[in-house]
């Protein structure tokens, strides 16, 4: 290698190194600017809500707010449960057993995010072709287990993480 070539090589190396290190720095600067829009520490801490369910009669439901979204808590009657369980999985666009959507031994309690899986509207209760919920925005029908039966929504309504603290209290989140 001639002296001239060596010089050129060293120069190229310097420029490449400068550009690379500079680009890494720019990347590192972008992260805080992006991450600041994620839920902050106070939001993350508000992850749980406790609900008193002692006042809910069979067949009735209430709606509570959890993480800014409605959560439906429905106490189903025995007939409603049987009806939800009589559907063949083949008839479901998003096949899922009703048993898998409730806590064992607490089959009457249906707890789910009251958000249509299509585009996020809140479905209306006791409406639609399947006695469950009906989303007025684009006509999605949900059954008594909150499963999608007809309409544009792709999946069943989501079941959030929840647990029974005691017989009268449910902790969501």
């Amino acid at each position: 290698m001639s002296k001239e070539e060596k010089k050129v090589n060293r120069r190229d190396f310097l420029f490449t190194a400068s550009y690379t290190v500079g680009a890494v720095g720019l990347g590192a600067v972008v992260w805080p600017l992006v991450h600041q829009m994620n839920p902050d520490k106070a939001q993350q801490a508000l992850a749980t809500t406790e609900v008193d369910i002692s006042q809910i009669e069979p067949g009735k439901s209430i709606t509570v707010l959890w993480r800014g979204k409605p959560v439906f808590l429905k106490r189903r009657t025995q007939e409603e449960i049987s009806e939800a369980r009589s559907v063949s999985l083949k008839d479901l666009p998003d096949p899922q057993k009703d048993e898998d959507r409730v806590k064992k031994g607490k089959d009457e309690w249906l707890v789910m995010l009251g958000v249509c899986t299509h585009l996020g509207c809140v479905p209306l209760k006791d409406k639609g072709d399947y006695k469950g919920w009906f989303c007025p925005c684009h006509g999605s029908h949900y059954d008594l287990s909150g499963r999608i039966r007809k309409g544009p929504a792709p999946t069943n309504m989501e079941i959030p993480k929840f647990e029974f603290v005691d017989n009268n209290t449910i902790k969501i989140g």
Binding site: P32, L33, H35, Q36, N38, D40, K41, A42
Partner: peptide, 8 residues
């Protein structure tokens, strides 16, 4: 609370 809020 805000992520990197102190820095910004």
């Amino acid at each position: 609370n805000v992520n990197f809020g102190w820095l910004i």
